[in-house]
Amino acid sequence: MIRVVVVDDHPLYRQALADTVSGAPELELVGAAGDGPTGLDLIRRLDPDVAILDVRMRGCDGPDVAHALEQSGVGTRVLFISAHDDGPTVHRALSAGGNGFLSKDAGSKEIRRAIVGVMRGEVVLAPVAGRRLTAELRRQRLPETPPLTEREQQMLERIAEGRSVAEIAAELHLGHATVKTHLRSLYTKLEVSERAAAVAAAMRRGLLT
C-alpha cells in the first residue's frame, strides 16, 4: 500500500482527490489538509509515502512545503497538481523538490498512475507541463557546463529516464553503493539534492536534450 496525504485549499477538489486515492486498492489515504502550514505539519507527523500538493495555497504554497520537507530530511515524495501549469510554475515546483507535476484536468487513472510512478522514483510530468518546462529551461539555460565524468553523465541520462538505483546498478554492472556515490557527485556538481532538480538543472545547462 502507498500511503498518501492530500493538501489542497479548494474543498471540492480536495475531496475529489481524496476519493481518487481511496478508490484505488494500491493506495491508502492517511490524511488531508486545506492549507500549506497544516499540510506540512500533517506530512511531518504521518510520514506518508507520497504527498499530493496544490501549488498555490494560503499560508505557504506547495513549493514552500516541498522545500521545507526536503530541508528537514523527510522522505515523502511530492506530486504537484495545479490549475497553473506555465513554465515558471512547473520549474519552481520541481526545483523545490517535486517528483511530478499534473494539471488539475487530469483524470483519476492518470493521477493514480502518477502516484505510483513517483513512488517508484520516476519524474512524472503531464505532457503540457513537460513542454512548458522544456521551453522555460531553454529560456533560463546557463552558458557554463559543469564537467561531468562519463559515469556521471550515464547516471544523469538514466535518472532522466526514471531509472531507480537498482535498475542503474544492474544495467551498468555496478554496486548500489557505487551508483549512489556517482549520484552524490553529480548532485554536488549541479548544486542540487535530488533527482528531479538534477534533471531540471542539467536541462538548463544543456547536458540533456
Rank of each mutant, 00 (worst) to 15 (best):
F101S: 00
F101Y: 15
L102S: 04
L102T: 05
L102F: 07
L102C: 07
S103Y: 01
K104N: 08
D105Q: 11
D105E: 12
A106D: 05
A106I: 03
G107E: 08
S108Y: 02
K109F: 10
K109G: 10
K109Y: 09
K109Q: 13
E110N: 00
E110F: 00
I111P: 03
I111Y: 03
R112K: 08
R112E: 08
R113L: 09
R113S: 10
R113F: 02
A114Y: 04
A114W: 04
A114K: 05
I115F: 10
I115D: 07
I115G: 05
I115M: 09
I115N: 08
V116W: 06
V116K: 11
V116T: 12
V116P: 01
G117F: 02
G117Q: 01
G117M: 06
G117E: 09
V118N: 02
V118K: 02
V118A: 03
M119Q: 14
M119K: 13
R120V: 04
G121M: 06
G121A: 11
E122W: 03
E122K: 13
E122G: 05
E122L: 06
E122Y: 03
V123I: 15
V124W: 03
V124H: 05
L125E: 10
A126F: 04
A126T: 02
P127A: 13
P127L: 09
P127R: 12
P127F: 11
V128W: 04
V128F: 11
A129D: 03
A129N: 01
G130E: 14
G130V: 08
G130Q: 13
R131E: 14
R131W: 08
R132F: 14
R132M: 15
R132T: 13
L133V: 07
L133R: 04
L133H: 05
A135T: 14
A135R: 12
E136N: 15
E136Q: 15
R138A: 14
